[in-house]
Amino acid sequence: MAATATHEEPAPILRLTGIDRRFGGVHAVRGVDLQVRPGERRAVLGPNGAGKTTVFNLISGEFPPSAGRVELFGLDVTTLPARKRARLGLSRTFQTSRLFAGLSVEDNLYLAALGVSAGHLRLVPSGKDGTLRAAARAMAERIGLDTRLDDLVMDLSHGEQRQLEVGMALVAEPKLLMLDEPAAGLSRAERVRLTETLIGLDEDITLILIEHDMDVALRVAKWVTMMHDGRVIVEGTPDEIRANQTVHDLYLGSGLIAHA
């Protein structure tokens, strides 16, 4: 795997080395190496079952790899639990929304902001938590949910829930943001809005994106990693990926796996 830019290379913000993960008899991820530099816009593509979400879970610390090494922000975090990685500045969304259905939109965002700050166990009334409440409301406005602050999340539409997923990841002000299929199930208008949000992200935030929608993925990403069968098979710019025969075969459902 060749690096893109040949000029000066900053230290990677994320480095996976020889990552393996088995679930019983299933070999979900096989020897994946991956490097992401600060400020990068990276898309991870691949058909269902390629191992994309497993790689995400290994990076965020849902479970440890069977073999290999995960480094975040220059630290070896292979055995560090998810909550400590979050506090280092990693923030993620989930493929199927994992929101607090019994809480209001504002309380969801409040908890997301609270997670990376001190004082999880404080007994102060959360309504008087000025700074975090302000951050929660500002984020609600940014994702277009400011009119639904007091509504329970279980009463939101699918599109609104997906927006909230992204908002909850952003309100933690991460250094590394990982989005798992943020556009899944969104309407056309909602996709356009999401794409704009992602393109408009602060340049300091590093973004890794799993997305099946090529319009979203290839517009947002500057560099694409293509996975299949637990392996990284191609990496390149969006243009190179568009022109790549293997990618076409995989996404058009060809039974033959061509060799790139």
Binding site: A86, S91, R98, F100, G102, M168
Partner: peptide, 14 residues
């Protein structure tokens, strides 16, 4: 209540 609804999300939030 966050733990009640989505423990995995709570871990991911820190």
């Amino acid at each position: 209540q966050g733990v009640r609804d989505e423990p995995a999300r709570m871990r991911a939030l820190g």
